[in-house]
Design a protein around this nucleic acid. Sequence first.
DNA 1: CGTCGCTTCGTGACAAAGTCACTGAATCGC
DNA 2: GCGATTCAGTGACTTTGTCACGAAGCGACG
Lengths: 228, 228
Amino acid sequence: MIADPWQRQRLLDAFPFLHATPEEFRADVFDHVALVRLPVGQLICHDGAQCTQLPLVLTGTGRVYKLGENGREITLYRVHPGESCVVTTSCILSGRAFPAFAVCESAVEAVVVRPHEVRRWMASSEQWREYIFGLIASRLQEVFGVLDAVLFQRLDQRLIAYLLGQLETASGRGIHMTHQALAVELGSSREVISRVLKGLESQGLLRTTRGLIELLDIPALELRAREG
Amino acid sequence: MIADPWQRQRLLDAFPFLHATPEEFRADVFDHVALVRLPVGQLICHDGAQCTQLPLVLTGTGRVYKLGENGREITLYRVHPGESCVVTTSCILSGRAFPAFAVCESAVEAVVVRPHEVRRWMASSEQWREYIFGLIASRLQEVFGVLDAVLFQRLDQRLIAYLLGQLETASGRGIHMTHQALAVELGSSREVISRVLKGLESQGLLRTTRGLIELLDIPALELRAREG
DNA sequence: CGTCGCTTCGTGACAAAGTCACTGAATCGC
DNA sequence: GCGATTCAGTGACTTTGTCACGAAGCGACG
């Protein structure tokens, strides 16, 4: 239950769809959710676990990933403020085990909803259903996209595309990431990432130093990400 | 609209959850669905398409797969009688494009539901919601499983596991499939499947002839599917 | 029966990617 | 400055995908 008007406002701001809901629904929400704070690195869900709560993220981000028995891993998607892990939703509503891992990538503030309320709101609120289905569909597309990339795209192109994508978030044209972190994003291994980066560096397309990758010839990189 | 009592009964039999729904809901269903027959090989949905109807399969099976630009493909899952393609559902409810292909693997009889009804029933029927969410969760798990297999498992083990799985469906211990068909199931290429099969054959674990694979030493195959 | 055409499978050479076992280099805390 | 830790480079090897062939099996049809 969230009583503090300030916290209530934060919740409304993070989840815009709530503005469109009836007054009673919002009251219902405030009554039946709890605010939690999770530290960086906190494991939210592990492979095969039963989900008991649905977290709606207010601040911070969660990372959902698959882990192979050889220790390799791949990031499937991230859960940003205003979103929730809908795989959890579907597990809750169907009673199935969660098929991946989820951790806090940064400190996370979230409101947690119990399965009973998740189901109840599915019946009572049009807006809640729209919200949940929108998330499910976009997650599905992300996961399908990952599968497509892993199966059908060359690693150098995927790597370049990822780096170019990161550039928009970053400042300047340097990306602060280790090779290991890149491997985890793309589901590859550190050695292979190093090899590919070295190849690109020898062509003058970028420059690497410990923990930093500088993109030098962005047009050429964009070209290479598209074709061969 | 389905008037024929015989067809109505078939629909109820194929979708057991309907038995638990109120009389009026079933009447509503009969009023708002249409029966369609699709031939083998009929393309139901292509990558990037907007879904306009939700098909609920009565007989036959559909196959949902991803296609790479190099022509390689991988089967994600099948839609059997009593099921529907929930990726379509989520696309309908969110207005997104379908991220894969779907074809009729055999002749398919299905009832099609329009988006408006899909949404309406989500609001009105507890059983419909349960049904849809159960399907979504199981599809998600299947797709996550495929991703896991592709990324983290060796092809020989995946192939053996698939063959052993097919054996349960088949008669005797022979599996009638071409190498190309196996490649499509596992997201590999024919040459590689041939190579792996040849390796297994040279170890006396199975025997291959044109279009047929006979498993000879099933315990040894089961062992190898698990470890190295 | 023989021939044509299609499907299926085999093969060898190569490229891309993952694995393993190391080594060396940069950085941080003290 | 020094040791521990993290990060990156390397080479040998295996697995998998790609390409360009060609051979073998099988059906259709005169």
